[in-house]
Amino acid sequence: MKNSEFIKAYAPATVANVCCGFDVLGFAMEHPGDEVWARKKETPGVTISAVTGVTGLSLDPTENVIGVVAQKMLSDLKIGHGVELQLHKGLPVGSGLGSSAASSAAAAYAMNELLGKPFTTQELVVYAMEGERKASGSAHADNVAPSLLGGFVLVRSYDPLDIVPLGVPVELYCTVVHPQVELKTSLARSILKKDIPLQKGIRQWGNLAGLITGLLKGDYSLIGRSLHDEIFEPERSVLIPLFNQAKAAAISAGALGCGISGSGPSIFALSATEEQAMAVQHAMEQVYGSSGIEVKSYVTQVPDQGARLIEQTILQPAQA
């Protein structure tokens, strides 16, 4: 194949649920993230010529989330030409950091740029959700929306879809520790009880309202008081080795709050300053230091931008 012009887009990792916002609240990280490269081709359909950074992901565009997203966009726009894609994973799979969401968001953003920006970034959420449907069986938005839009995002409703970007009204830093253990989202969901006691529900709703109010008012104390999960964390935390010890260490080191990122096994903590976030990282890493469980950790500011175009560049597509 001859050299061809590729569009290159990046979409970041995300933290979903944020303790009290199960399935309705998420925020973006600055890194890690995924890149999708896209170019037009004369023949119709979607092809995936390369996946790097991880093993085991399919090149079949009907089985890989980036292909599903691209095909849906081509179909809705009634575009006859095809697209070649490449996925470059910088985000670990099964981490609880929105791995499939970052791929889906990057694909939607790259496709939109390639096709002349027919959609707003917020309109791309619907297409990225199709990747999530393929990955998990549920077209949820609490990861893809912040990955596309940046900052904090509230999913007020799914029927009809109502996405509310909250931005980054107050400076916050996120520490994430990812224990290198496998935890399937299907297992983390299967253990959840279907019925919620009224009193726990009331406390949870109060915490969610308090968290959003704290963000909008810049009230760090209120944010900290509200970062509690009354319902799901007690059930899911048993699946994450040393979760309680890591959470206690984070709070002792100055974190505003700490909880499970997505369905786990990653654990996140929010801090008011980068210095505090680094101290929290050190404290949480120490918990796992003598356990024999390896961890990867990240410290990142919560950014006000999510997916973005990196560059248009001339590349040699992968050889078949």
Rank of each mutant, 00 (worst) to 15 (best):
Arg156Ile: 01
Met284Ala: 01
Ala128Trp: 08
Glu42Arg: 14
Glu230His: 15
Phe268Ser: 02
Gly21Met: 04
Lys72Met: 03
Phe22Ala: 05
Tyr127Leu: 11
Met111Arg: 08
Glu132Met: 06
Thr43Val: 13
Ala255His: 09
Gly26Cys: 02
Pro234Ile: 07
Val65Cys: 14
Met73His: 01
Ala105Glu: 06
Ser58Asp: 15
Leu227Asn: 03
Asp219Cys: 02
Val280Asn: 01
Leu25Phe: 14
Ala9Val: 02
Asn17Ile: 05
Pro44Tyr: 13
Gly80Ile: 00
Val15Ala: 06
Ser147Val: 13
Asp142Ala: 12
Met111Ala: 04
Arg236Asn: 10
Val170Cys: 14
Ala277Pro: 10
Val176Ser: 05
Ala105Arg: 09
Val280Gln: 01
Gly289His: 12
Gly289Met: 00
Lys200Met: 13
Val287Asp: 00
Gln281His: 11
Glu84Lys: 00
Cys258Glu: 02
Arg225His: 15
Thr175Phe: 12
Gly306Lys: 08
Gly131Ser: 12
Gly151Trp: 05
Ala105Tyr: 04
Asn207Gln: 11
Gly53Ile: 10
Ala253Asp: 12
Gly254Phe: 07
Arg156Lys: 15
Val24Ser: 15
Met278Trp: 07
Leu77Ile: 03
Leu256Asp: 00
Gln86Cys: 12
Val15Cys: 14
Gln276Trp: 00
Asn17His: 09
Ala209Tyr: 03
Leu183Glu: 11
Ala248Ile: 04
Asp229Ala: 06
Ile260Leu: 11
Pro303Ser: 05
Gly67Glu: 11
Pro197Ala: 04
Asp142Lys: 08
Leu114Gln: 02
Leu148Thr: 11
Gln204Val: 08
Gly257Leu: 09
Ile79Phe: 14
Ser297Glu: 02
Gly201Ile: 06
Leu315Lys: 06
Glu233Leu: 03
Gln281Ile: 00
Ile260Arg: 11
Tyr220Met: 13
Arg225Cys: 01
Glu171Asp: 15
His282Asn: 07
Asp60Glu: 15
Leu215Met: 05
Ala16Trp: 03
Leu192Phe: 04
Lys184Gln: 15
Ser136Gln: 10
Val295Pro: 01
Gln316Glu: 14
Thr121Ser: 14
Val238Met: 13
Lys41Met: 15
Ile7Asp: 00
Met29Arg: 08
Leu161Gly: 07
Pro303Leu: 06
Leu172Val: 03
Gly210Phe: 08
Ala105Lys: 04
Glu275Phe: 00
Glu311Ser: 14
Ser104Leu: 03
Gly289Glu: 11
Ser4Lys: 13
Phe243Met: 08
Ser221Cys: 00
Asn143Gln: 10
Leu172Tyr: 09
Ala249Lys: 05
Phe243Gln: 07
Leu114Lys: 05
Asp159Trp: 00
Ala318Asp: 04
Gly82Tyr: 06
Lys41His: 09
Val168Glu: 10
Glu274Arg: 14
Tyr10Thr: 00
Ser138Asn: 13
Thr300Gln: 10
Asn64Trp: 06
His282Glu: 14
Gly292Pro: 03
Pro317Leu: 03
Leu208Arg: 10
Asp229Glu: 07
Arg236Trp: 08
Ala16Gln: 01
Ile267Ser: 09
Cys174Glu: 05
Val68His: 04
Lys296Met: 11
Val295Met: 04
Phe22Ser: 04
Leu256Asn: 02
Glu235Ser: 15
